[in-house]
Each structure stands twice: as structure tokens, then as C-alpha cells.
Design a protein around this nucleic acid. Sequence first.
DNA 1: TGCCCGATTAACT
DNA 2: GTTAATCGGGCAA
Length: 196
Amino acid sequence: MSGLLSEHSDPSNPARQGFWARHPAEVAADLIGWSVFVDGVGGRIVETEAYHHEDPASHSYAGPTPRNAVMFGPQAHAYVYRSYGIHWCLNFVCWQGAPGGGVLIRALEPTAGLDIMAERRGLADPRALASGPGKLGQALGVTRAHNGLALTSPPFAMRSGPRPELVIGPRIGISKAVDLPWRFGEAGSRYLSRSF
DNA sequence: TGCCCGATTAACT
DNA sequence: GTTAATCGGGCAA
């Protein structure tokens, strides 16, 4: 499908809603190779994790709360949460049937605004700019202000891309449902948070 | 109201 | 391999 946009993969296509109204694990896999930008700063998504409302590791597992409310709202919106009191992590809301799900964007291959990312991160190595969910949030300037914003309009922008060969494994940093293979990455990428 | 802990990172030993 | 930094959600009291 290299380069060609299906109605599901083209974010500018009105039918795109179908892309996000699927199981988060399917969306997480299909997002690898896409690009995301915040105010023009961003790059290719090379690592994601899926979180489902019936998944004990998901913020949405116990039902809506003020923090996770966005996960129960419309798909293709940004869910941003504070991690360990320090980092901002970026998720894309997606769910099918019952609401409450999302995809954590864990790592990017930077392609635009490298200088801005370097300034925000305090270092210049492209491989260290967004190779982790907290780093990615910092590099893209994501904060609580982005929570609940649609991915289809500024400051967000998305571009579909060919899906590379994938590697799949268990998610990182969780204590429940640790064996679910809901972490996806680009095989051989040098921009992953950790190897699979 | 208080306490515990986390979808992490960076700087240690 | 280990640990501090740091803060808000969720739950017990």
C-alpha cells in the first residue's frame, strides 16, 4: 500500500472515522509509519501501545473520571495525562462499540522541527529527542492544554504513510495485563524507546 | 484529608 | 541495576 491512501488511512478523508472506530490494538498497529505534528513539529510514529476499556492496565478500565474523560469522548482526539508527576504523555482516542480506549504514542522518528525539539529537550541527538512517551511529549510541547483537542485540526496535524514491517511485544511500565502483546514498533528502527 | 503509587526519565553505582 | 524527582488520581479512613 506504499504511498497510496485508503479511505481508512487518509486522515483528510471524511470516512476516516472508520479508522479510529476499531479496537485500539488494530489502530496502534496501523499508526506505525504515520506522522504526527504539533504546531508543525513532529515526525514518523515508530512505537505505540494500545489500551482498551476492558484492559486492567488502561486508565479507562474503571470507567470515566475527570482525568480519563477524554478517552470516553469522540475518537481521533488527544488524551494527555501526567506521568509520574513529571512527564506529559500523548494518546490518540479510539474505541469500537463501548467507549474508552486509546493508543499511547511512545516514540517518533523526528522529521520536522528538529531544532525546536532539540531546544525543548536540551540535547540534539535525533535518536534521543522523542524515543519515549515522556520525551516525545516534551519534544512536541504537549501539555494539559492539548487534552481533548481534535487530531484533525491545528495545532495537531497527521499524515498517513506506508506501514513498515512491525515488531510486536508486551507493553512497558505496567503491572497488570503484562502479557498482552499490545506494543507495536517499526522493525529495525533506531528511534524506539527500548528494543522489543 | 491523607496516603500510595504510577502507561517515565536521567543520573547515579 | 538502582533510585530520586514530582504530582494528581483513586481509595481508605
